[in-house]
Amino acid sequence: MDAPRYHTALIVGTGPGLSASLARLFARNGMNVALAARDTTKLAELCADTRASAHACDARDPLAVAGLFQEVQARHGAPDLVIYNASARVRGPVGDLDPEAVRTSIEVSAFGAFLVAQQAARLMLPKGRGAIALTGATAGVKGFAGSAGFAMGKFALRGLAQTLARELGPKGIHVAHFVIDGAIRSAAQTGAEERPDATLDPDAIAESYWQVLHQHRSAWSWEVELRPWVETF
């Protein structure tokens, strides 16, 4: 079997970091790219660079997510590669956490991922092919003090990914969960000079996604951990 060739990518939860690197990588490889975010004004430059379409969507809203897939399908055709990269962080001692902020964090990190994966699966199952990638974090495999709100959502995301991989994999859909175990490099997060590459390069993460999503179906990964070389674990 040849390596899969994807035509249309939908990235949900698009910002200037990993999602932007993924969008540029997909565009360089000739794919149609659709970007979804609650605020699409921040996507203008990325859309210009990648010829991507921008779509406003609250991933927590079932009707909005269904409408997103309809828009993308009308514009580009059904997406055969769907990336869920949305999350909401909330930190603090458990006694001080705002319950509504925690609810939002869980809904964005996990419930939104379910809604997006559900819509993706409905389009991919009749064709027997496609891929769904879910972006996790250290907090999804190891809870830290003060991270209850974030960890609950990411643990749920990992459970969703494992379930989907077992359900959809035998039907031709590759589901992969990526544990980003460290800080992603950005203008505000570059790492100390004495520890080069102490943060994850978003372009390097994107390349890992690409490699995993092009695995031969006889050797699929359902989960991959990515961390800087100096990270302890």
Rank of each mutant, 00 (worst) to 15 (best):
S19E: 02
A36R: 12
I11N: 07
T41H: 09
S21G: 03
T40I: 09
P16N: 11
A56S: 12
K42Y: 04
L25P: 07
R28W: 07
A23P: 04
L25R: 12
D61A: 10
C47D: 02
T50P: 00
K42R: 14
R60E: 13
T50G: 03
V12P: 07
A34T: 01
T40E: 01
L25Q: 10
D61W: 11
D61H: 11
R38E: 08
E45W: 03
S53K: 08
T41R: 08
L18V: 15
A36N: 08
P16G: 09
L10K: 09
S21H: 02
D61Y: 10
L22Q: 04
L35I: 06
L35W: 01
G15E: 09
C47G: 09
G15F: 03
V12T: 15
L22H: 03
S21I: 02
L35K: 01
G30D: 15
S19Y: 01
A54C: 09
L43V: 15
L46F: 06
L18T: 15
H55S: 00
R38S: 10
D58W: 10
V12H: 08
A54H: 09
M31H: 10
I11F: 04
V33I: 08
L22P: 00
A48T: 13
L43F: 11
L46A: 06
R38Q: 11
N32H: 14
H55G: 03
D49L: 13
A34G: 13
G17H: 04
T50N: 03
A23F: 00
A56C: 00
L22A: 06
R51N: 11
R51P: 02
R51A: 12
P16V: 09
A44N: 10
D58R: 04
C57E: 03
L18R: 05
N32A: 15
D49S: 13
E45P: 07
N32G: 10
A37E: 02
M31Y: 08
S19V: 00
N29D: 13
C57I: 10
D49A: 13
A34N: 01
M31V: 13
D49C: 07
A54K: 07
A52E: 01
D58M: 03
A59T: 15
G17M: 02
G17P: 03
A37L: 08
R60I: 10
K42I: 15
L46C: 06
T41S: 13
R28Q: 12
S21R: 07
G15M: 03
A48Q: 14
R24N: 05
A59L: 14
F26P: 05
S53L: 02
A27G: 08
V12I: 15
A27R: 09
G13V: 11
A48K: 12
A48F: 08
M31W: 08
G30K: 13
A34W: 06
C47V: 03
